Amino acid sequence: MILQVALLLAGLSVASGSICCPHKQFNAFQYVNFVNSTTTIEALYYIVYDGINQRYIITGDRSNNQFLSTTKVIYDYKQSKAYSIDAEARTCTTFPLQGNFEDQQNVCVPSYAVSVGPFFYGYNRDRLNTQSYTYNRTALDGGRQRVTVVVSEADCVPIVISRTTTGGAGGNSLYTVGYNDFYPGIRDITVFDIPSYC
């Protein structure tokens, strides 16, 4: 679940009715925190997102926040299949994917979002200029969500996303994700190659 909600926003192009929209492809580290009345999940992982080909990769250990470079999961929605790969142990497990690929172009900062002003990270020439927006929307389970996003001013790259959900089937929850080392595009497309032992 946390891997699915982690793919929330990644920013650059502008679509009709929006302030800015995600890149179709990107690499980034994500730190995710999800809390509700029964669960607290913290995760640090590396994500490679390929919206053009409806797939993404998550690499990392979600249970204890330690980044593990030898294990990755490839979610390939065109093939309706996922691969959990441990390159060091040379093992691979496949499992079917349910549902449809969530194209990040459908997760834009909407035109009705309210600007809550500029923010600045860093100092002097090294300062990163950002914009922050907030808006309400209905969650998939019928709950009410308040979303706050902070994106870079120049190119709409996400910095921090926070989402508070109240009501609905899932109850109340808080979800935040912080981005680090964001890179538009895919640095190495071979990361999507399926090993022969799969």
Rank of each mutant, 00 (worst) to 15 (best):
R163D: 00
V160K: 04
R146H: 02
T148H: 13
Y133I: 10
R144E: 14
T164R: 01
V157L: 07
G168C: 06
V157I: 10
R137W: 01
T165P: 03
D141V: 06
A154R: 09
D155V: 09
A139I: 00
N136Q: 04
G143H: 05
G142M: 10
R146F: 02
R144K: 00
G142Y: 11
Y135G: 04
V147K: 06
P158Y: 12
V157N: 05
V151R: 11
S162Y: 01
I161H: 03
C156V: 11
T138V: 07
D155N: 15
R144N: 10
G168F: 09
I159C: 01
V150I: 15
R137Y: 02
E153N: 15
V147Y: 01
P158L: 15
I161A: 10
V150E: 15
N136F: 00
A169V: 14
D155F: 13
Y133V: 10
E153F: 13
Q145T: 06
Y133D: 00
Q145A: 06
V160I: 03
T164A: 04
T138L: 14
L140H: 04
I159M: 07
V151F: 03
S162A: 05
A169S: 11
E153C: 08
V147C: 04
G143V: 03
S162P: 00
T165F: 12
D141R: 03
V160D: 09
S152V: 15
V157C: 00
T164Q: 08
G167C: 08
V151Q: 13
A169I: 14
A154Q: 15
A154P: 01
V160M: 08
L140I: 05
V150C: 06
V150Q: 15
G170S: 13
G167L: 06
T138F: 08
V149P: 03
P158V: 12
V149T: 15
G143T: 03
V157A: 10
D155G: 10
I161P: 02
S152I: 11
I161M: 09
V149N: 13
V151L: 15
G143K: 02
P158N: 09
V150H: 09
I161V: 10
T138D: 11
V147G: 09
V157F: 07
V151T: 14
V149S: 08
G168N: 07
T148A: 13
G170D: 12
T165Q: 08
Y133N: 11
Y135C: 05
A154M: 11
G143S: 05
R137Q: 05
Y133W: 07
C156L: 13
S162W: 01
Y135H: 05
G167M: 08
P158G: 09
Y135L: 00
S162K: 10
I159D: 02
V160Y: 06
G142A: 06
N136V: 02
E153H: 12
E153I: 07
T138N: 09
S152C: 13
V149I: 15
I159Q: 09
R137L: 06
V149K: 14
A169F: 05
P158H: 10
T134M: 10
T134R: 08
G142F: 10
L140A: 15
S162N: 07
A169K: 12
D155E: 15
I161Q: 09
G167Y: 03
T165N: 12
P158C: 11
A169N: 04
T164Y: 00
Y133P: 11
L140S: 14
Y133M: 07
C156Q: 11
R163G: 00
G167K: 04
Y133F: 15
N136H: 05
L140V: 05
G168Y: 13
T148L: 13
N136G: 02
G143I: 06
T134Y: 04
G168H: 08
